[in-house]
Amino acid sequence: EKARIARDLHDIVAHHMSMVVVQAQSAPYRLDAVTPEIRTEFESISETGRAALNEIRGLLGVLRSDGDHMVTAPQPGVDQLDELLLGSTRAGLPVSWRVDGDRASVSESTGLALYRIIQESITNAARHSPGGPIDVAVAFGPQSVSALVNNGPSPLGGNQHSASETTGGNGIRGMRERASAVGGMLLANRRQDGGFEVRAELPSMPA
Rank of each mutant, 00 (worst) to 15 (best):
K2E: 14
A3G: 00
A3S: 09
R4D: 14
I5C: 07
A6D: 05
R7I: 01
L9W: 09
L9S: 05
H10S: 15
I12V: 15
H16T: 03
H16E: 08
A24N: 00
A24P: 02
Q25G: 02
P28M: 07
Y29Q: 11
L31F: 10
V34F: 14
I45M: 10
I45D: 04
I45L: 12
I45S: 07
S46F: 01
E47K: 05
T48R: 12
T48D: 08
A51Y: 04
A52H: 10
L53E: 11
V62D: 11
P74D: 06
V78F: 09
V78I: 14
Q80H: 03
L81I: 12
E83V: 06
L85P: 02
L85A: 05
A91P: 03
V95W: 02
W97F: 13
R98F: 15
V99I: 14
V99R: 04
G101T: 12
G101W: 11
D102C: 10
S105L: 13
S107Y: 01
E108W: 03
S109P: 02
T110V: 00
T110G: 01
L112S: 10
L112I: 07
Y115F: 15
R116F: 07
R116M: 12
I118G: 13
E120V: 09
S121I: 14
S121Y: 13
N124I: 05
A126M: 08
I134T: 13
I134Q: 13
D135R: 15
A137K: 13
A137P: 11
V138Q: 10
V138T: 07
F140G: 04
G141L: 11
Q143S: 12
V145H: 04
V145L: 06
V145G: 07
L148Y: 07
V149F: 09
V149W: 09
N150V: 15
N150E: 13
L156H: 07
N159F: 08
S162W: 00
A163F: 10
A163W: 10
S164A: 03
T167R: 09
G168E: 04
G168D: 06
M175T: 06
R176M: 04
E177H: 08
R178T: 05
S180V: 12
G183M: 03
G183E: 01
G184Y: 04
L186E: 04
L187T: 13
A188N: 07
N189R: 09
R190H: 12
R190N: 14
Q192V: 12
G194T: 09
G195L: 03
E197K: 09
V198A: 13
V198K: 10
R199F: 15
P203Q: 08
S204A: 14
S204P: 05
P206F: 05
